[in-house]
Computed example of a mutant assay.
Amino acid sequence: MVVEVEAEIPAGQDQIGIDLGLNDTATCSDGAKLEAGRFYRDLERALGLAQRARKKHRVKAIHAKIANRRKDALHKFSRQLVNRCGLIVIGDVKSSSFTRTNNAKSVYDAGWAMLKQFLSYKSAGAGIMFHAVNEAYTTQACSCCGAISAHSPKGRAGLGIRVWTCECGVTQDRDINAARNILALGHERLAGGITAS
């Protein structure tokens, strides 16, 4: 049965940049975060026991519970953003580049692609702008002065650096700084138009 429902356009006019990560699934430019890896931690022991006992139905049920928790958290987070924002810009990180590392389990659990999908269709339904931008160097460049400092985190080797101080004197949180740079990139893309790549 198909039912037509009039879409409610949210009144929010905030502008948000989103940095996707492993410590937190998503970090917004205003400091809001969606914690990562909390969907399965308390079920790991039960899942391991069921797998060793070869209880296929129990394993399937636990995996379904984890998937439902992830989907619920991502739905709620994306709905909150769409309700309060007029522009959402997200870093276009490729999950496949991390799946061959020691962080593969965390990458799969984060649900980055699902979050992008939810934000995309909810934004379209609400009539707000949603863009994915290349996030290269967004972690390294200072969101205040734009310089890439010698103290800034560099690539995967700098993943342990969570807070750093730029040469301009501003102390930056790695993820919030990246989210602010992503938002700035979104503004540049809007001002210059979208080019074919």
Results as ranks from 00 to 15, higher is better:
G31C: 13
D175F: 14
D173Q: 11
D19N: 13
Y108I: 09
C28K: 02
A124P: 06
A147P: 04
R38G: 14
M1G: 12
A184I: 08
L119S: 12
A124W: 08
I176H: 12
D92C: 01
R156G: 07
L119P: 04
R162M: 01
H75S: 09
C145N: 08
K94L: 01
L74T: 02
G193W: 15
S197R: 12
R70Y: 04
A132Q: 12
H131C: 03
D19H: 03
V82D: 13
H131E: 07
K33P: 08
F39K: 14
L43I: 11
G86H: 09
V59Y: 00
V170M: 09
R162E: 05
I182P: 01
P10F: 06
L22Y: 08
A136W: 13
R79G: 07
Q80P: 00
K33G: 05
Q172N: 15
V2D: 10
L119R: 02
I9M: 14
S96P: 02
H151A: 12
H131Q: 10
N177G: 04
G155A: 13
G48K: 03
F39W: 11
A191R: 14
I62Y: 10
A184W: 11
S197M: 14
D72I: 01
Q117L: 07
T138Y: 07
M114T: 01
R38I: 07
N102M: 13
R69T: 04
P153H: 00
A147C: 12
A64W: 09
K33W: 07
N68W: 12
C142Y: 06
